[in-house]
Design a protein around this nucleic acid. Sequence first.
DNA 1: TGTATTTAATGCGATATCGTACTAAATACC
DNA 2: GGTATTTAGTACGATATCGCATTAAATACA
Lengths: 151, 151
Amino acid sequence: MADEDLGCYFTLIYEVGIINQIGTAFLEARLPNGLLVSHFGVVSHLIRVGDGATPVELAGAFQVAKTTMTHTLAGLEKHGFVEMRPNPADKRSKQVWLTDNGKKFRDEALAKLAPLFQELAGRFSSSRAAAMLPELAEFRAVIDQLRDEIT
Amino acid sequence: MADEDLGCYFTLIYEVGIINQIGTAFLEARLPNGLLVSHFGVVSHLIRVGDGATPVELAGAFQVAKTTMTHTLAGLEKHGFVEMRPNPADKRSKQVWLTDNGKKFRDEALAKLAPLFQELAGRFSSSRAAAMLPELAEFRAVIDQLRDEIT
DNA sequence: TGTATTTAATGCGATATCGTACTAAATACC
DNA sequence: GGTATTTAGTACGATATCGCATTAAATACA
């Protein structure tokens, strides 16, 4: 129960911060003209989970402020990668739909990233990466829950 | 070798991104008046590793741009948490030294954070967190290396 | 039914971060 | 020793992100 006991959480956050920095920079360097990981992430999310999410749902999924998501979505819309449509179930709300160009953007980004990840796979196997995921995901779920409770 | 093989890297980066978001927001909500995790991180680093690092070394340690570190250090100096002194070994360079107020800031921040981490420890044990660290650190080292090579 | 509270999205201002360009010093190289 | 290249730090402009306030719609509730 000493302080050093809690130190591993700080170390964990520290490591995660650095990995996030490097990963973001890596991906961003390979995305076309001014597009960011946030854009790529939203499009990927829409492909994985499905179209028609609301901005507030997306903000929750990525744990960013609503205003940030508004900004990101505006950028995606300007590039023609998503379409904002009124939400038939709630007139305050909107729905985000992918366009063909949006899917193409994601496919091309993935293709451009693939060699890099192949190289990475040679140095840190995908099975090792996969093995880390369950604990990471649960840690994420725990602090997510904690965040909700503490407000 | 299919695409799904590489998918775990994306998932890893995604999880790390969210954890980073939540962790940063958590810590920042508990730091005094306008201080950020970047400030806390630098002070903690100087305590852990030792005084007298140069700005460029700190930028490297946190994988942020030099200009960002200049900005962060200016904030710390304005709060009186660090002192910038000329580097006797290199007249272009500087050294960053902690002040007593800087150490106090870190101690107080830690004290304020402790209950939160105690609560966290009850839901995700420190031993589980510690168990994740070696793989995370090595993954970090690998992408760090990759970053250097690819330029 | 009518009012109060909550919620979705956005406008606005503040600021953290980044890339580029610049200056001064160190290093390489001839 | 003299020139060219690299490196440390910073100024400046661009922009991503956030918090606060506002508007419109949904929900609670009396």
